[in-house]
């Protein structure tokens, strides 16, 4: 038995572009779930709209592909009505941080027992590459043709501030670390948030000097800074470059949670 059994084999190959990192994140999530010994009938995947949100359609469990940004609100209903179900939410940066930002912070506040995996490609991929709330400053997109002028969201800091029990960030390069982080997220009672930075060769890379998929993945790798190392650097008063992504386990705590199986 391997995580491949969790795929709807009749629906593969999926619709993601060649080189898209979303498939990698689904692999890592399913590999973590496979280790949890969960039954397929007790697991529900919920998603909103966007590239990332097509993921539940390829997974052989009950799955709910909902309206734009509302995945976490739907998942709240599923989990509260039947706490015996394990509910995992796939979402994207535009889906979760823009239109669904309110539902996200309130789910963190309630600390409801969900695991939310955000595939952050820093752009709206499905609609053709518009700027999103996580598009880095200066990056090009079809709606920021002169470079993004807005400051992006730090989703992990947002989740921590709003009260999530477990928060971590990895990239699509760090597959083993991501798999372990998802597993910890699944095990943690309360709201778990895992941000996975993914490459988007079609909408983001093409406009931002990552013509090859591997170049973008290499950029994500080389611009990842472990949280422990960041903390050390802060202690020593060293300068931390602004374009680094802080990866690793950002938050783990035991605030009282809602919707935990009794």
């Amino acid at each position: 038995m391997s995580y491949e059994d969790w795929y709807r084999q009749d629906r593969l190959p999926h619709i993601f572009c060649a080189g898209c990192g979303n498939g990698t994140i689904i692999n890592c999530t399913l590999a973590a779930i496979e280790q949890m010994d969960w039954k397929k009938e007790d697991t529900v995947f919920v998603s909103g709209i966007g590239c990332s949100s097509r993921a539940p359609g390829y997974i052989l469990t009950d799955s709910l592909h909902t309206t734009h940004g509302r995945a976490i609100a739907f998942a709240t209903g599923v989990k509260m009505a039947n706490p015996d179900l394990h509910v995992v939410v796939f979402t994207g940066d535009g889906d979760m941080a823009a239109i669904g930002g309110n539902h996200f912070i309130h789910a963190c506040r309630r600390n409801i027992d969900l695991t939310v995996i955000c595939m952050n490609n820093q752009i709206y991929g499905m609609t053709g590459g518009q700027g999103s709330p996580t598009t880095p400053k200066g990056c090009l997109s079809s709606t920021t043709p002169f470079g993004c002028a807005e400051t992006p969201f730090d989703l992990c800091e947002l989740a921590t501030a709003a009260g999530a029990n477990y928060v971590s960030r990895w990239t699509s390069y760090h597959v083993k670390e991501l798999e372990k982080a998802v597993k910890v997220g699944l095990e943690t009672p309360g709201f778990s948030f895992i941000e996975a930075l993914v490459q988007c060769p079609t909408a983001f890379g093409r406009r931002n000097k990552f013509r090859q998929v591997a170049d973008h993945v290499e950029y994500l790798r080389s611009h990842s800074l472990l949280k422990a190392k960041r903390d050390r650097m802060l202690e020593n008063g060293e300068h931390i470059p602004e374009d680094m992504y802080i990866v690793g386990e950002i938050t783990r705590r035991k605030r009282p949670a809602m919707g935990v199986k009794p």
Binding site: E4, P13, G23, T24, N27, K176
Partner: peptide, 17 residues
């Protein structure tokens, strides 16, 4: 048990097994 498996995990298209 499964060893390494990084290529399989990374493959976004579930093509390696």
């Amino acid at each position: 048990r499964q060893l390494c498996g990084v290529c399989q995990l990374t493959c976004p298209d579930q093509a390696i097994h």
